[in-house]
């Protein structure tokens, strides 16, 4: 294990799990204590490294869920054929130690001084970095108009649902819209399909308001939303994207 992290140099650091919070049946938030962690910016991620007793190592990237200044938290969704996520979601216990490297990423980042309005589009666990942005905005920048479009398979798979509903109720400048693609509760009157151009036209800020968009989710979701937004007149440079592959991921 390398010694103390030198400022500005990215190294693996020991981290202790201090709290684990079940979010859905497949997703868990993990709160870590890392003695020399640099403060992150909303939207950044970190790398997790696990080392088995025989020395085998596996690394994965996960988005940071907390706002800067809050205890460092990631939210991990279990991939059933995954190598790392089942361990993080089902096995890791408070007091256990793993290694973290970060915070990293400078492209998919929002800070209150970037202004808005902001349009956040989440596919599944792609909501995690967007939640960091929503939390950052709530702490420092609640006057920035924001809309979150969250595509989930079912209502039970919506991560952070209570907190999102509370934020949307407390903050008139924040709207949260769900679309449930696989199953809807009885009486559901919201969207119930994959995001398409028409759905974006109804939920995203009009392009003439110069919005800034952040899109995170599975690759196919991100491509569809980014193309849809550009089709509505968003300049490609104003559409920030982060893709995590076919399923799950960060």
């Amino acid at each position: 294990m390398a010694g103390t992290a030198v400022l500005g140099r990215l190294t693996w650091q020991p981290a202790e799990l201090v709290e684990a919070i079940d979010e859905t049946s497949r997703a868990r938030t993990l709160v870590f204590d890392v003695p020399e962690w640099m403060q992150h910016r909303a939207g950044q991620h970190l790398d997790v490294r696990l080392t088995a007793e025989d020395g085998y190592r596996a690394e994965r990237s996960y988005s940071i869920a907390s706002a800067p200044g809050e205890p460092l938290a990631i939210t991990v969704e279990r991939l059933d054929d995954g190598e790392v996520s089942p361990y993080l979601v089902d096995e890791l216990r408070p007091g256990d130690r793993i290694e973290l490297r970060g915070p990293v990423g400078g492209y998919f980042v929002w800070e209150p001084d970037r202004g808005g309005p902001i349009f956040l589009a989440a596919g599944g666990s792609g909501v995690v970095p967007l939640m960091s942005m929503a939390r950052t905005r709530a702490l420092d920048g609640a006057d920035v108009p924001a809309r979150l479009l969250y595509s989930a398979r079912t209502l039970d798979e919506v991560i952070y649902r209570e907190e999102l509903e509370r934020l949307a109720t407390e903050q008139p400048e924040l709207d949260v819209v769900y679309t449930l693609t696989r199953g809807q509760p009885e009486g559901w009157t919201g969207y119930a399909r994959r995001v398409d151009g028409e759905l974006l036209a109804e939920t995203a800020w009009p392009a003439h308001e110069s919005p800034l968009a952040y899109v995170c989710g599975p690759t196919s979701f991100v491509e569809a939303v980014a193309e849809g937004l550009v089709g509505l007149g968003y300049p490609p440079k104003r559409v920030k994207t982060e893709r995590f592959g076919a399923t799950g991921g960060r």
Partner: peptide, 19 residues
């Protein structure tokens, strides 16, 4: 299936020492 360059932030950051 591909992801995007965001996923390389840690690996490249460690090599180059900058974001």
């Amino acid at each position: 299936e591909y992801v995007d360059g965001n996923a390389m932030a840690g690996t490249l950051g460690e090599l180059f020492g900058v974001e």
